[in-house]
Amino acid sequence: MADKLKFALALALLAAGVAGFYLLAEQPLVVRVLSVLVGVGAGVGVAVLSEPGRRFVDFAREAVVETKKVVWPTRKETVQTTGIVFAFVVVIAIFLWLTDKSLEWVLYDLVLGWK
């Protein structure tokens, strides 16, 4: 129940920040944007204090750790893979064009007799 209240408070703070943007219409844009940022920051701060918020932060940290374990391809590998994909697409496009023209020839010239 407490987590639901924290989440509701976080949403209210976010809404207050957005409402502040419109209520401060006569103020400079910087003040209006700061009201939104303060609302978002306060909402996130309250949300992180809840159990689902803590679980999300833990998940995000683990995701960053796993991302650092990934072996990213080199520039050469990326260019080679892109070239292979491009060549495959060209080959498939030619195959589909030949199939289409063959079916067109069979249907229109041989079966229907339209020349």
Score class of each variant (00 low, 15 high):
Ala2Ile: 12
Ala2His: 02
Asp3Lys: 04
Lys6Arg: 01
Lys6Asp: 00
Ala8Leu: 10
Ala12Asp: 02
Ala15Cys: 10
Ala16Arg: 00
Gly17Ala: 05
Gly17Ile: 03
Val18Glu: 11
Tyr22Glu: 07
Glu26Trp: 02
Glu26His: 04
Gln27Phe: 05
Gln27Ser: 07
Pro28Leu: 00
Pro28Cys: 01
Pro28Gly: 06
Pro28Val: 00
Val30Glu: 12
Val31Gln: 09
Arg32Pro: 02
Val33Asn: 03
Leu34Thr: 05
Ser35Lys: 03
Val36Gly: 01
Val38Gly: 04
Gly39Met: 05
Gly39Arg: 05
Val40Asp: 10
Val40Pro: 05
Gly41Glu: 10
Ala42His: 09
Gly43Val: 03
Gly45Gln: 05
Gly45Cys: 03
Val46Leu: 03
Val48Asn: 04
Val48Ser: 01
Leu49Glu: 00
Pro52Thr: 08
Pro52Gln: 07
Gly53Leu: 06
Arg54Lys: 13
Arg54Ser: 08
Arg55Tyr: 07
Phe56Cys: 01
Val57Asp: 02
Asp58Asn: 09
Ala60Glu: 00
Arg61Tyr: 02
Arg61Phe: 04
Glu62His: 10
Ala63Arg: 13
Val64Gln: 00
Glu66Asp: 02
Val70Gly: 00
Val70Pro: 01
Val70Ala: 10
Val71Asn: 13
Trp72Pro: 04
Trp72Gln: 11
Arg75Pro: 01
Lys76Tyr: 09
Lys76Gln: 13
Lys76Cys: 03
Thr78His: 11
Thr78Lys: 11
Thr78Leu: 14
Gln80Leu: 02
Gln80Ala: 11
Thr81Pro: 03
Gly83Tyr: 00
Gly83Asp: 13
Gly83Leu: 01
Val85His: 07
Phe86Tyr: 11
Phe86Met: 09
Phe88Pro: 00
Val89His: 09
Val89Gly: 07
Val90Ser: 08
Val90Trp: 10
Val90Tyr: 05
Ala93Trp: 04
Ala93Thr: 13
Ile94Asn: 11
Ile94Cys: 08
Phe95Pro: 02
Phe95Cys: 11
Phe95Gly: 15
Leu96Asn: 13
Trp97Ile: 04
Leu98Asp: 15
Leu98Glu: 15
Ser102Gln: 15
Glu104Asp: 14
Trp105Phe: 15
Val106Ala: 12
Val106Ile: 14
Leu107Tyr: 14
Leu107Val: 14
Leu107Thr: 12
Leu107Glu: 15
Tyr108Asn: 14
Asp109Gln: 13
Asp109Phe: 10
Leu110Ser: 09
Val111Met: 07
Gly113Phe: 03
Gly113Asp: 03
Gly113Val: 01
